[in-house]
Simulated assay, not measured.
Amino acid sequence: MKILHVINSLATGGAEKLVVDTLPLYAEHGIEIDLLLLNGTEYPFFKELASLKCCGIFTLGMGSVYNPLHVLKIIPFLKNYDAVHIHLFPVQYWVVLAKIFSRSKTKLIFTEHSTSNRRIQGNVFMRFTDVIFYRQYNKIICITAKIQEILQYYTKLDNKKFVVIQNGVDLSKISQAIPTDKRLLPNDYTDNNLYLIQVSSFQEPKDQKTLIRAMTLLPNHYQLILVGVGPLKKECEDLAANLGLKNRVSFLGTRMDVAALLKMVDIIILSSKYEGLSLSSIEGMASGKPFVASDVPGLKEVVSGAGILFPVGDEKKLAKEILHLSNDPDHYAATVEKCLARAKEYDISKMVAEHINLYEEILRQQ
């Protein structure tokens, strides 16, 4: 069985990290696996995967992922694989067009990683176009039941087109991680400091600004660490400076030691406006620290009954929940215990096995 995964790039992001973590596991199961990138910039995830030498990595250059000429460049790859597994937009469109133009018989699988996007929120024309492209896939993997519900309503496609396979994380990597030395952080360290962290790209759905505003409602010994890069990073840096938080909010950029950072801090937070099935939330719950998240689709399904949920965009409620965890040791310990138990439901080995079963099922179909 030869499978090609295709994604825009290996820049920082949940889908990108999932690809990096899973491709070595497919190879361990005897799958001939390769990866095709529209943009082959050697981001840290790219270098990590290349160092493992578990798969071929092909790139279409260093330019924009929105260049429609990618369609022509994808065509030669289709004939070399039994199935192609696609992640994210716009490669979701380019591969379909490549298959249509080449009349390839290669099976196509798409993983929908989010409960929302600009196309779903867009006009009737965008919806009509989207449905045409979704229809071309042999199977659409939805990483939560909520995503399947939304996509079925949006596309009106038959239920058989969809399958729910939850994302997973390598729990052993997190449990075995050695906590980062707090004295190595940018801001001054004291024994009295209490550390919060959010790991996510700086894009509009991630809403780091709510968390930054919550810092103004917390005592001065609370320190916030923000890990990630993205177009809104500068805005968040300016907001922290304008609120007088420059010495209490650290922007660490891209880090490859996220598990060690999670083990170091006191509370882990994700203040997103929406998610698919956040790998960051699972990693956070698996770290042995309490996890706090906004009460939105893609997070509440994972976190409810384990971690703490707060109303989206409500910095006052978020600050209140942080203080409650900090000041109540029993509440803190109970939350940690429930988070650890929930994380065990999302082991990456289960996800990989379900993906392989799906590949085999699709390839049996004529």
Rank of each mutant, 00 (worst) to 15 (best):
N123H: 05
K79R: 14
I178Q: 13
L232V: 06
V65R: 10
I74E: 01
N357W: 00
F125I: 15
L69T: 13
L97H: 00
K350C: 10
G305Q: 12
S116A: 12
R135C: 08
I322W: 01
N247V: 07
E237H: 09
D170I: 00
L171A: 07
I86A: 10
N123Q: 04
Y346M: 08
A11E: 15
R118F: 14
Q136H: 10
L18Y: 14
N242T: 09
K99H: 03
Q121A: 13
V258E: 06
Y332T: 05
M126S: 08
N187G: 05
V6E: 01
L88R: 02
E112P: 09
A333F: 10
L36M: 09
Q203G: 10
G284I: 06
P231Q: 12
I150G: 08
L52R: 15
Q166E: 15
S64M: 01
L78C: 11
D82R: 00
E48T: 12
A50K: 14
Y274V: 00
V95S: 12
T59P: 00
V258D: 03
G276D: 06
L97Q: 01
D170P: 02
D207H: 12
R248Y: 10
N8V: 10
A27S: 11
I3W: 03
Q166S: 13
G298V: 09
S64D: 11
L226F: 09
E237I: 02
I109Y: 09
L151Q: 15
F310I: 12
V296E: 00
D158I: 01
G305I: 10
L10R: 07
P297D: 06
Y137D: 04
I75R: 15
T210F: 08
E112F: 04
K234D: 15
I86H: 02
S201F: 02
N247I: 05
F58V: 03
V227N: 07
K263P: 08
V249R: 06
Y189W: 14
D314S: 07
I74N: 05
L309S: 08
N247C: 13
A334Y: 04
V20G: 04
D257H: 05
K2P: 12
V229G: 05
V95P: 10
F162C: 11
I74F: 08
T106F: 11
Y346H: 13
R118Q: 14
Y189S: 08
P205M: 04
L18E: 02
R248T: 04
I348S: 02
V71C: 06
A341F: 03
L38T: 05
S280T: 15
G13C: 02
H355M: 11
T22M: 07
N8E: 12
K105M: 11
V20S: 03
